[in-house]
Amino acid sequence: MPERPSSVRRPAALAFCAVLAALTAFPFAAESIGQPALTSLMARILIYGIAAASLNLALGYGGLVSFGHAAFFGLGGYVAAVMAQAARADGLAFGILPGSDQLAIVIPVAMAAGGLLALAIGALSLRTSGVQFIMITLAFAQMLFYLFASLKAYGGDDGLTMRRRLELGQLDMRDDKTIYFLALAMAALVYLVLWRVVISRFGRALAGVRQNESRMQAIGIAPLPYKLVALTISGVGTAIAGALMANHMRFVSPDMLHWTKSGELMIMVILGGVGTLIGPFLGAATLVGLETVLGGVTENWPLYLGPILLAVVLYARGGLTGLLGAVLSRKLR
């Protein structure tokens, strides 16, 4: 993240408000062109964007290449589904928590679960670095995947269906527009929190740790707490996305915990632009959008998606954000 003079902040804030306004108008625009299904798709993109943006805090800003973020995503999802199941059956969720079908309770529980899991995984994994860190985070996520796949009480391989979406006040959660605005509000919130984190003293120290660990140690900053906190915040954000996704789809399955999901989130970040705030959202929109559009045209969509991704890696350094930046700066000159 290059230093920016404070005068750039104002256009950035303006752009943020403009994008937010456009996204607020989106469901109504989709309805007026007779494509209300786009709203549900866009909600999915926003939710994946939350997960990818959270991963990016660890991966892009902290240099912690986690290949196990599906663990936090899936755990968030399972917290939502299992708490809703327990509320219906008047039982306990995971044997310790009272059930609840209130979104305002479930989301904070998912956040706490994701944060605790990230703290535990981080405390063990951060002894390693490089490709070993990639693989040990994968290992923990895979263990969770097989755990949930083998727990018959939570549906095992088949997953768990939520009979009803979680409730929030008097809102009609059966309406996809409600789900969309919920996702949009959470996405905006996560974006703002990540922005505050990145520009804070903590964020700067984290960037320093990523760039040169021994130099940071030499000026008296111990790297481990910074990495651990970054990973924990990242886990919390990803768990929010998981809970929202479960609520949106009314379904969770071990697929949410599978390593391919970690890979997908990682691809979104790299595609959009590592270490940028908006990149992961762009990446999520591009990947989910391309899958949907190409998938609508031909069942052989991966045949075309592969080369497109390859072209982005080879010719657009810094992903789509890098590409956009290069185009814009050429225009401004």
Binding site: L59, V65, V131, G263, M266, I267, I270, L271, V274, N300, W301, P302, L303, L305, G306, P307, I308, L309, L310, V312, V313, L314
Partner: peptide, 23 residues
């Protein structure tokens, strides 16, 4: 073309190859 690049670029590129080859 990717030797000098970040590991993450290699991950994305080889993931793209998997998609293509599998399909």
């Amino acid at each position: 073309r990717l030797y000098a690049r970040d590991h993450l670029d290699q991950v994305l590129a080889t993931f793209a190859l998997i998609l293509f080859v599998n399909q």
